[in-house]
């Protein structure tokens, strides 16, 4: 297996602490030693592509250079960071004149990048490198009876489609089934949550998240499982607003896939960041306890 370095990105140190809090113990449990990237900077997100795309590439170039010096590939759990870094990595290594200039600037400022680093998401690594069977062997508490809607959002599956299907991906569903949960047929799994737009133009955000929440409820999901901080945030925050507007209760728990994975792998629930949920998890715990998981 490849050696990885952990790139948390700003969200996992801020509003999505529970993603980091659940990811790290899961990695430990499945035997992946991993260190955090030293003095990493923000990937620039979607914002820098809209303002200055060469700077966007340079920001990622600095991080890629740190990983390269450490002799590691990058593990990026935030789908936004994952795409931004992968996109910039492609740009930097494709040999255009614009890219050459950025590579020279990186070199003169002590961040030389030769182009040897791969950027991967933990879900990719779990499925393609560790393997479902290996992870399944480590399950201690099957999540029997728990119905989950796996929500992939956009940026892990698009535009780079080498890992899973861009419209109907299934890797997270397979992982959740391996944990003993039942993955419902969630047809909204790759529709957009609005990204940062949900925070700026709320009415649009409400419309988009209504579709996602309604479909999860219709399919009988007890919980929506996500792999991106912005998806998790938008769904959880918009649930109350959508419920009010459409006069129906859409307050379904929205968790990270690593939180449920951790639970199934026998990590104590206190160590998986569940206390950070704004939506009540009471019904979910009841379901899990009835199903046999601790």
């Amino acid at each position: 297996m490849n050696e990885y370095i952990y790139y948390p990105g700003c969200s996992l140190k801020g509003g999505s602490k529970h993603y980091e809090e659940s990811l790290l113990p899961v990695l430990k449990k499945i035997g992946m030693e991993i260190e955090e990237m030293n003095d990493w900077n923000c990937c620039g997100a979607t914002a820098y592509f809209a303002v200055d795309d060469t700077i966007a590439a340079a920001l990622c170039g600095r991080n890629l250079s740190i990983a390269e010096k450490a002799g590691c590939h990058v593990m990026a759990p935030c789908a936004g960071c994952f795409l931004t870094m992968k996109k910039s990595n492609t740009f930097l290594t494709e040999g255009s004149n614009k890219a050459q200039k950025v590579l020279t600037d990186l070199k003169t400022t002590g961040c030389e990048y030769k182009g040897t680093v791969k950027v991967r998401h933990p879900l990719e690594i779990f499925i393609q490198e560790i393997g479902l069977d290996t992870i399944k062997e480590k399950v201690e508490n099957k999540l029997t009876g728990l119905k989950v809607a796996c929500y992939y959002g956009c940026q892990l599956v698009r535009p780079y489609t080498d890992f899973d299907d861009p419209d109907y991906p299934e890797t997270m569903d397979n992982l959740m089934e391996a944990m003993g949960a039942e993955a419902v047929d969630y047809s909204a799994k790759t529709l957009c949550c609005g990204g940062s737009l949900t925070g700026t133009i709320e009415n649009i955000g409400k419309g988009l998240n209504y579709v996602l929440l309604k479909e999860a409820k219709k399919k009988g999901a007890d919980v929506i499982v996500t792999l991106c901080p912005l998806c998790q945030f938008n769904l959880e925050i918009m649930a109350a607003k959508v419920s009010k507007e459409y006069k129906e209760d859409y307050k379904i728990p929205v968790l990270y896939f690593t939180q449920l994975m951790g639970l199934a792998l026998g990590i104590p629930k206190e160590d998986l960041g569940f206390k950070r949920s704004i939506i009540s998890l009471k019904n979910m715990w009841q379901k899990i306890n009835n199903g046999g998981a601790k």
Binding site: C10, G14, G15, R62, T109, R276
Partner: peptide, 26 residues
């Protein structure tokens, strides 16, 4: 309340290097 937001301004250590890099690129 859930510890997901703070008043702290996040900063990297080597801001000097980053600024030089961004100026060069520009």
């Amino acid at each position: 309340k859930t510890g997901r937001m703070s008043l702290k301004k996040e900063k990297i250590k080597n801001r000097k290097q980053l600024r030089t890099l961004l100026n060069e690129v520009k």
